[in-house]
Amino acid sequence: MNVAVTIRDLSITYAKKDKALQNVSLEIPTGRITGLIGPSGSGKTTLIKSVVGRLKLPTDKVTVLDLPAGSAKLRKKVAYMAQELAVYHDLTVRQNLAYFTRVLGFKYSGVKRRVNETLRAVDLYDKRNSMVGNLSGGQQQRVSLGVALLGHPKLLVLDEPTTGLDPVLIENLWQLFHELVEDGTTIIISSHSMSEAARCDDLVLMRSGKIIATGAPKKLMKQTGADDVEQAFLHLVKGEEE
């Protein structure tokens, strides 16, 4: 099994706040969907920001695709969809995607092709000439996801990508995620939805800045004798507290 991300004993404290991460060590395998599951405030976003190089870290704590997190060489290999939308509201969907495609270094004919492929992948082809500011929240979120997909990233990191979306749409997006993984992409996805956890290949359960368990959903349920991930989570939290 190849490793996409290695984290060694990482602790992060934001100024004047509690510890956001406490002694976290983790290996994330390539070619799978790893779900970071936990309530809000559990440290998921901080962990994700450390992996994508958004946070300044002590050296050698986090390795991504055999390079230190935040390396310039990773800018084309790792794509990150943050919780904030980070798209231009005063441009159309197509103009947004086209700009980011050009920044990624695609050439003229390639830009058009890649933009159209991505518009179809996130199901926004019919909305391509709408201003992003006039779209619904869910549609805007898909524009942001589209931007993350543009560069065929080896590692795709998604922070709560399905929050607030229509269940039918969530179903379609998960199908897309599984297709991407079949093509060799590694996906890290965060969610506070325990029901969504069952769709991941591996889980990392987090609470209060700590990892409380890792493993495949079935394994975690078997280990705790629970019927679903939520029960397994509760069981593990109880075990920690005792």
Binding site: R54, A72, R75, V78, A82, E84, A86, V103, L104
Partner: peptide, 13 residues
């Protein structure tokens, strides 16, 4: 503030 600048800074720009 919209996050587009940090997104751009995570790209080769």
């Amino acid at each position: 503030h919209s996050g587009t600048l940090s997104r751009l800074m995570s790209l080769p720009l």
